[in-house]
Simulated scan of single mutants.
Amino acid sequence: MDAHVMVFAPAPQLTVTIDQTGDEPEIHLHPGGQGVWQARMITCLGTSVVLCASLGGEIGQVLEPLMASEGVELKVVRRDSSSGGFVHDHRDGRQEEVVDVPGHPLNRHELDDLYNLTLGEGLRSAVSVLSGPGDPTLVPSDVYRRLAADLGGNGSRVVADLSGDYLRAVLDGGVSFLKVSHEELLRDGLAGEDSDEEFTRVLHELHASGAESVVVSRADEPALALVDGEVYEVHMPRLRAADPRGAGDSMTAGVAAVLAGGGDLRLAIRTGAAAGALNVTRHGLGTGRPDSIAGLVERVRLVPVGSERQDRTTPDDLADRATTA
């Protein structure tokens, strides 16, 4: 089994961004979607990635060379129906959505081909990351349940960053590492209130339901991590955010990259936290300098919950905390 990561990205999107830094507007085309952003960060950290995806229509024809240029090994199921995409206007500091086209659901034969492709590549990978589609109508949750069970049951460490029905599906199949945000837990009814005690309870419940280790990210509060039965707060320096999006995907990617290289889970979580924190200081999802991330890892601490709490204000805390949701 090779020390690379397989990323399951069933329905990537074409992202069109309108920006303006000078006198003239600019148009930027990039591949997007959770799996693409995760694969980009894993590659930034020096770990090889095989990206399994489905592409179709005119958007798919544009997406394929863009995805191949990301430095990943791209494995594609081509389908008759169209891939999706969105257009955002970022001029004058805006984050305005102009149009969002989710694409068409995969049919039964396309799902079968994508499943077989993903399973084969995942079984050759040290770590398999299961990422979600932008729209839940595109891929049924049962695909995730079966992939988690088949990959995990045959030696691949499964990492997931999912919510809703997809989260319940991978828990049923079993995962090595699960990342979920506190907003998603509250929205899905898995947490009843926003409190340390409630999220600690949920961590243990997610573990009992099928996740070996769990991280719950909590926006401007320290993430909570359950590792080997112990709950930790993930403390990191506070950094000023240029773009708060994508920290959670970068966190998951950092964990996957370290685990694929045989690293310790605690180091993986610290690396993921550093990758997520640094990502929000940049414009561009799933990006970051590996040397900068490595330097930030040294400042991330896992503090056992219940230990004597000290004053959290440090020189690194003078700026705004980078979000990890």
Rank of each mutant, 00 (worst) to 15 (best):
T137K: 09
N107C: 12
G254Y: 02
A257H: 08
G22I: 15
Y115N: 04
A247K: 00
I27M: 13
A191K: 00
R270K: 15
A68C: 03
M41F: 03
G164T: 12
H28Y: 08
D161M: 06
R79I: 13
I293P: 02
D196M: 14
A3K: 09
R40D: 04
E230K: 14
A274E: 02
A126K: 12
D142N: 10
R282P: 01
R168Y: 14
A9S: 12
H88A: 06
F8Q: 01
G57H: 11
V7N: 05
R238L: 11
D291W: 01
S69N: 08
T313D: 06
E230Y: 13
E24T: 15
D311F: 06
E233A: 13
R321M: 03
D311T: 09
D135W: 01
H182V: 00
E64N: 06
T17K: 08
D113R: 14
E233Q: 12
D92V: 08
L267M: 11
G85Y: 00
S217W: 07
G155R: 14
D150H: 06
E212F: 05
A219W: 11
C44V: 04
N154Y: 07
S209A: 15
T21M: 15
L119C: 08
E221D: 09
G120P: 00
D80F: 00
V258M: 15
P304Q: 14
Q95I: 07
P102E: 07
G192C: 08
D220C: 05
L265H: 13
D161C: 07
R301M: 11
N154L: 15
L138P: 08
V36M: 07
L318H: 10
L267K: 10
R79H: 11
T15D: 14
S292P: 04
P31Q: 02
P10G: 06
V72D: 03
A274R: 00
V159Q: 00
G33S: 10
Q34E: 15
G248W: 08
S141C: 06
S125L: 10
T15W: 00
R240T: 15
R245G: 04
R321C: 10
D311E: 11
M236P: 12
L51W: 03
G132K: 07
V215N: 01
A257Y: 10
E230F: 12
L278I: 14
A241W: 10
S217T: 10
G306R: 05
L267T: 11
G261S: 10
G153Y: 10
G192P: 05
R321Q: 07
G120V: 09
H182M: 03
L302G: 02
I27G: 07
E205M: 09
A253D: 05
N154H: 15
L55F: 02
P237T: 11
S176G: 13
F199E: 06
T200S: 14
D150Y: 05
M6S: 02
G286C: 01
R309V: 12
L278N: 05
V76Q: 02
Y115W: 07
L178K: 03
R201S: 08
P304S: 15
R94W: 13
D320R: 14
E184L: 01
E183Q: 12
S125A: 05
G272Y: 02
L267I: 07
T47G: 02
V127A: 03
V231M: 12
T252I: 13
L130P: 00
V216I: 13
P290M: 12
L171I: 07
L259S: 07
E58D: 14
D317R: 13
